[in-house]
Design a protein around this nucleic acid. Structure first.
Lengths: 190, 190
DNA sequence: TGTACATCAGTGAACGCGCGTTCACTGATGTAC
DNA sequence: TGTACATCAGTGAACGCGCGTTCACTGATGTAC
């Protein structure tokens, strides 16, 4: 604790972490740069040095979110749709603040190139799992629909879980996600 | 325009409408009671009369959201899971601000009895469609999973659509929702 | 090894602003008789 | 039909607060020679 030197060391990191904490606890409405500075033990004008303004900070947070999502999706490589979906949910539950900000474009600078690149990378990794859901390869339209269906399901599951809307379950989140997402690929009774 | 009388007529309604407009445009972060009063052409202290505070107003908005969702679900009666899902999406796209607030409990008074009742009613109507998704009736667990899967999918589709994350489509939202949600019930190729 | 200088991160005082909340009030509406 | 009174909706002035932003500054770090 306490800063040993005039310089913080990694103020940027500290501010992003503090922001994620505040948002996870109280939502983006409660966020203020002055409060983050206070939490990081730094003067209230310091954040502007790193992010310019509030939207700048949230742009950085969203970018980091897409990078982490991409990493999580990659780490599930080869496990097909179900693996990707479970990874998507795991990311969202582990990074609720990032996840929330990523899908609220009014909060950040949507035209930031670094952000766009990170988002595009994550999206590509996500769509890679769509083909597997359709029996016949190359059926572009069927593939598109199956991809959207899978993404919608994983996204909705994570959202509902995070907002506390889901009934409690005895299973771990991973198990529950797997069971629910599995409904999409499961054969239906005649 | 301009108020003909000292009394507004239906200030409560006007404030809720203004709030929905602001939130749909700029998110809940941009909401302030003074701004709503301004939009309604009324003194800045007036909103407190009807809602107490900002969370009170958002509680009313969330409650109205659950009532409208319930009505929309009822109106699709008898069409089974697909009808319910499409109705869910239709509600969300028609009432983006309500939808957004309903699932951010940090914004309103979650313990309000009127709110809880409305939410419970909507939830019951939603779950009524779950049974249809499983072949054998009375399979409580399979029914639960299928219900969560369907809800997740409809919710996620609406969320992604509203946040502008979905690729553009030539189809109407209703058609698109039907095509995507249909993936859950469609027979899979062997 | 030492000195000079440039760069960078964070400071702290100052500003103006919009906000939520309070409160005594006033104008309009509704009801009892 | 008229009068008296209660209730209610909205007013407007006042308050204190936390915020974002600006700016001249200072202390620390890194680099050239």
């Amino acid at each position: 604790m306490g800063k040993q030197s005039y310089h913080h060391g990694d103020l940027r990191r500290a501010l992003l972490d503090a922001a994620a904490e505040v948002i996870a606890e109280s939502g983006p409405v409660a966020l203020s740069l002055r409060d983050l500075a206070r939490r990081a033990g730094v003067s209230h004008a310091a954040p502007a040095h790193h992010f310019g303004d509030k939207a700048g900070l949230l742009t950085a947070l969203a970018t980091e979110g897409y990078e982490r999502l991409y990493a999580e999706l990659q780490a599930s490589g080869g496990e097909g749709f179900l693996g990707l979906g479970v990874a998507y949910v795991r990311f969202a539950l582990a990074n609720p603040a990032h996840f929330e900000v990523m899908f609220q474009p009014s909060l950040f600078h949507t035209d930031e190139p670094v952000l766009s690149a990170a988002r595009e990378r994550a999206r590509a990794a996500l769509y890679a799992g769509a083909g597997e859901l359709t029996g016949e390869a190359g059926q572009a339209d069927a593939e598109r629909l199956a991809g959207l269906a899978g993404w919608s399901m994983a996204h909705g599951f994570a959202m509902l879980k995070l907002s506390g809307s889901m009934p409690q379950s005895h299973a771990t989140p991973d198990q529950e996600a797997r069971a629910v997402l599995g409904q999409l690929a499961a054969p239906r009774p005649a």
